[in-house]
Amino acid sequence: MDVQPPDIFVQEVETAIGALIQASKLGQRIVSSQDKGTITKDDLSPVTIADFAVQALLIASFKQVFPNDSFVGEEDASDLRANDALMTRVWDLLNTIAQDEFTQQGACTLPQSKEHMCDLIDQAGSSSPGGPGSGRVWVFDPIDGTKTYVRGQLYAINIGLIVDGKQAFGAVACPNLSLRHTGNLKNESADPNGNGCILFAIKGHGAFYRHLESHHIELKSTILPIPSTFAGNHSGFITCTGLVDSALDGVHDVVAQRLGLQFPGSDVVPWVVRWAALALSIGSVTVWVYKRRDRYAKAWDHAGAMLLFEEAGGKITDVHGKDIDLSAGRKLSNNFGFVAAPIALHAKVLGIVQDVLKEQGRDEFLQ
């Protein structure tokens, strides 16, 4: 059944949907290409020309509509400024949609020059979310799951609005995740036809979804609340066992076993896709305990995307049971790991996680 979004954050919703549709076109142009313009950053993580292009598009679009807001993004433009050929490739990618009918209708705003493009990227590349009194801050992850993206697998584009340190709005595009997907989700579950989706949530007003291929702002339906049990098609553990090595060994599989859930269940690298999968009831639980106590999540992997699950009936804390503090900075240094489950089951899941850590002599992870 078609529904209209609530009469709140109307400009934010329209801007996000238009920008995500056009950003997804950029992502999809590169995801199927052999040469994605991939370079390696100082932290050894990959970045592609699509990461830069999408971040520039998002900031240009939101800055045009909300000029007094602040912006946080994963990338900065230092690599582009040092490599003219790379800068040109990003600029050329952006220009592939300059004459697109939807762009011409105002769905998004593009940078005016290469220098403007770099300046926009830099506006978000070193800033941080703030706490009380910090106002409206947009947090962008232009390509979440770059490691899977370069393989032509699942990825997402994330937008989060934080107001005075709290999530207020989130919007996510999963350009190659079909709403028709059933069963466990894998990195390689990308829809070969590019039938993606957009999800968004407004704090206190629910979560919604639509098919990406529709160019209408109206939504197809609401996301149904997540059941309070692990019964039926809504049960499932969502984790990541490959491509990244940041998880503490020997914990996640034991937690899943005690919950009576298949492990690994849905096995997905990108965090934003994991939050979307939980909101869509592809799974019901995710647990993440880092292998080092000094390892922290990054704001752009979670801000906004987490709200999808929370507004669909989920609860999210860290391993200690603390609410996730998005005001801590670019890294969520006031939290350690994640425990997410339907509200009625969260306490049970959290208790099992903590019991397993204690039984395994991992008390330092609970301090």
Rank of each mutant, 00 (worst) to 15 (best):
V3C: 10
P6I: 02
I8A: 15
F9E: 14
F9S: 03
E12K: 11
E14Q: 15
A16P: 13
I21R: 15
L26H: 11
Q28Y: 13
V31I: 12
T38I: 12
I39S: 03
K41R: 15
D42K: 15
D42V: 15
L44V: 09
S45W: 10
I49H: 02
F52W: 02
F52L: 06
A56Q: 01
L58E: 02
S61W: 06
V65W: 00
V72W: 02
G73A: 10
E75F: 04
A82F: 00
N83A: 08
L86C: 00
T88E: 15
D92E: 14
L94G: 09
T96H: 02
Q99N: 15
T103Y: 02
P111A: 05
K114N: 10
K114V: 11
L120P: 09
D122E: 00
Q123Y: 04
S127C: 01
G131M: 01
S134G: 04
G135I: 12
G135N: 03
F140L: 06
F140K: 03
P142F: 02
P142V: 12
D144F: 07
T148F: 13
G152I: 12
Q153S: 04
I157N: 01
G160C: 07
I162G: 04
D164G: 03
K166L: 09
Q167N: 14
A173R: 04
C174L: 14
P175S: 01
L177A: 02
L179G: 15
L185S: 10
N187K: 06
E188T: 14
N193D: 13
N195G: 03
C197Q: 09
I198F: 07
F200P: 10
I202F: 06
H205G: 00
G206W: 04
F208D: 05
Y209V: 05
H211V: 08
H211R: 15
E213F: 11
S214E: 13
P227G: 03
P227Q: 04
S228Q: 14
S235Q: 13
G236A: 08
G236P: 11
F237W: 11
F237H: 08
I238L: 14
T241P: 11
T241V: 00
T241E: 07
G242Q: 14
H252C: 05
D253F: 00
Q257D: 08
Q257R: 11
R258W: 00
L261H: 03
D267P: 08
V269K: 10
V269G: 04
V272I: 10
V272W: 05
R274A: 05
W275L: 11
W275H: 15
A276G: 09
A279E: 08
G283M: 07
S284Y: 09
V289W: 00
R292V: 07
R293L: 13
D294V: 09
Y296W: 15
A297T: 05
A299M: 15
H302Y: 14
A303Y: 09
L307F: 05
L308H: 10
L308V: 02
E310R: 13
G314P: 06
K315Y: 12
I316L: 10
T317A: 01
D318F: 07
V319S: 08
V319C: 12
D325Q: 06
S327V: 07
G329F: 12
G329V: 15
G329N: 09
S333G: 05
G337S: 06
G337D: 03
A341P: 07
A344S: 13
A347N: 11
G351C: 05
V353C: 14
D355A: 11
K358T: 12
G361A: 02
R362N: 04
R362D: 02
L366M: 06
